[in-house]
Amino acid sequence: MANTGYFLKEALAGFSRGKAATSSAIAITTFTFLILAVFLLIAHNLRLIIIEAKKEVSIEAYIYEGVANPQYLGKKILDIEGVAGVEYISKEDAEEEFRSSFENDASLLEVLEKNYFPASYRIKLSEEMHSPQGVAEVASKVVALKEVEDVDYMREWLDNLTSTIHIIQVVGLVVGILLGLISIVVIGNAIRLTVLARSERISIMRLVGATSGFVRIPFLIEGLLVGIIGGAMAVGLVYLGCWLLNREALLTISYLPGSYNLALVGSAGLIGVLGAFTAVRKHLKV
């Protein structure tokens, strides 16, 4: 395109000429995307915490006294679909575990004259079985084995975790969509101001026979730049914030993954282009 140079030059000129309007548009983009990015960061970290928590999901299968061959039982459990691993805990191990977790509570340990603890298998589940339904399904199969007296799998904790995830997802979606819409309106208006400052220029160009595309392209490039710069600044600020919090050891926060950052900067650019497009369209009708 012979005009590419002109379009770029014109977009950059608009950038430096309309300093006040352009920098406020960038600031507004930065601010709205900062909110969006912080929100995404919180959601992302919650998700990581949940993934970690789910790894802890296990089923405790208590074995009847006097089962002769626990290794054979272990194999049978391993054969159940959704079981990722088993760990045998003998009566002695169970007592030891109990003692070590209550070692500061002498009175409780005194009562423990005899080893009342049954031997058990601690069953780790494969990832697709981390849902409450999956855990219950495996547990029911385990309890059906004749050597198994009972199972325990923190049903309430799992249910709570699941409903928490659900709430976070719904709230996240609603807040995310709202923030996205607000940023489109706010950034669109900011860019509208930069275009308004040059409405005379647009009308003169129209009078001399410039096509709407020719008039529009520099503004679209400018909108793209405003969006990308604003989005990148927001991402940078969030990164800086994470880094500071981690360094001061106030919180351990995982950074937003690169794909999120790219998506943020990209959508900021897109909103900039859309804002410029609608803002210019109004002035092109001459």
Partner: peptide, 24 residues
Amino acid sequence: SLRQVPYLRRHIGMVFQDFRLLTD
């Protein structure tokens, strides 16, 4: 149509009372 207007205007020069030059 609105699309054809620019091409028509390329054959028409215009001069106004207030000049309408780009002052910058």
